[in-house]
Amino acid sequence: MIALQAYWREKRWDGLGLSLAGLCLVHCLATSIMLALLASAGGFLFSPIIHEAGLGLAIVFGIFALVKGMIEHGFMLPAAIGSLGIGVMSGALTLPHGGTEIVYTMVGVAILALGHDLNLRASR
């Protein structure tokens, strides 16, 4: 039981990062679908402020979790892949708000999630 608690305590940042990546992906997909179905409902969820704040949090948690994992297990590949995802997500913030930005954001989130997954696997 103690070993299991220690395992989850060490892995919580990657778990949080994966959770945020999943929430971001769900948000992007749900917003796109909702806008296609109900154009008037997209005003709040499709707001650039929500997108920028969410990506900012995802980037901060991603950097923290990936660096922490690299220090713990010594493998650079998860951090390198996660950094690519963070770069794509950061690049999406520079695009005009719309379809292209959503695609780049989802690709970046997926790459970052892969980095978090590799980080978890390397820590085992």
Rank of each mutant, 00 (worst) to 15 (best):
M1I: 04
I2M: 06
Y7H: 12
R12W: 14
W13A: 02
L16Q: 04
G17D: 06
L18P: 05
L18E: 08
S19C: 11
L20D: 01
L25I: 11
L25S: 09
H27W: 15
L29V: 14
L29Q: 09
S32W: 15
M34R: 09
L35T: 15
L35E: 15
L38V: 13
A41S: 10
F46R: 12
S47F: 09
S47L: 09
P48I: 14
H51T: 00
H51A: 05
H51M: 04
E52R: 15
A53E: 13
L57N: 03
I59A: 05
I59L: 09
V60H: 02
V60W: 03
V60F: 00
G62P: 11
I63S: 05
L66R: 05
I71T: 03
G74Y: 04
P78S: 02
A80G: 02
L84D: 02
L84H: 05
G85M: 10
M89A: 02
S90F: 07
G91T: 06
A92D: 00
L93H: 03
L95C: 00
P96R: 09
G98A: 02
G98M: 08
G98E: 02
E101I: 00
I102R: 15
V103Y: 12
M106N: 05
I111W: 04
L112K: 00
L114I: 15
H116W: 01
H116K: 02
D117Y: 12
L118W: 11
N119M: 08
L120I: 13
R121W: 14
R121H: 15
R121C: 07
A122R: 12
